[in-house]
Amino acid sequence: MSMPFDIDQRMEGRIEDVGSFVQNIVNDLIRMVIFTGELTLVVWDAVRHPRRIRRRETLYYMDMCGTDAVPIVVMICILMGIILGFQSAMQLQKYGGDVFIADFVSLVIVKEMGPLMVAMICTGRAGSAFAAEIGTMKVGEELDALRTMGLNPVRFLVLPKLLAMLLVMPLLTVFGDIVGIFGGMIIAVLKLGLPVVVYYNRATAAITPLAFLLGLLKSFVFAFIITVIGCRRGFSAGNDAQGVGRAATSTVVSAIFWIVIADFVLTFFYSMIGE
């Protein structure tokens, strides 16, 4: 049994913890906004001079973040479809609404789980890799070398990653959506005995073009968040191996945090416009 005095002290500690947690988030947000501003200038410059974009690096990152992620995306999303199928089948069976499994699974996947799962996978694969790569370049004085060569590190290092992610993550999401809906179909057919044609027809009817596009917009936003956080953490990494490790870890933690926040905000707005 602890004394009231202890409780007071512990409470104070808790409040301090909460305070510094909030302060960290606010600082993080400010720095992210500044970095985004810098990035916007570079993107604007790239729009005006598309020839100056480093194409080879962009292709490399498309390969790394896209092609190489396909197997894991397929795995996770098909399982997600199966899980959603199971859960909804159990509820829907109670009310005799078996056929709505198609509507439920396809809409949840397209609007929510597809973009979110792909974003989680890309955070773990690409976001942490970006932080580690840029952090290692910092340790090896490569960032200094870039700057003294008069090359803008943001243009040189961040832009190809950003372009690659913006192109590849929506594609991965489309891919994940398709296999996720297919996963739901497996359950609909095997557990509920729904004909494939019925599932297919209901699913395609349920997904409106707008719902599909809004889902893709989410994955655009997530791609942006992952790249910005990964790169920024790399630039501010400590000058040693542990610093690089910490940068990679904190990328994953804060990217997931901000992705969920962004998802919440977007979902809220979508519901306001009736989607």
Binding site: T136, M137, G140, E141, E142, D144, A145, L146, R147, T148, M149, G150
Partner: peptide, 15 residues
């Protein structure tokens, strides 16, 4: 910065 060349203690080549 473009007007001068610099080498670094560790080489700092782009990997």
């Amino acid at each position: 910065m473009r007007g001068f060349g610099v080498t670094y203690q560790s080489g700092a080549l782009f990997g």
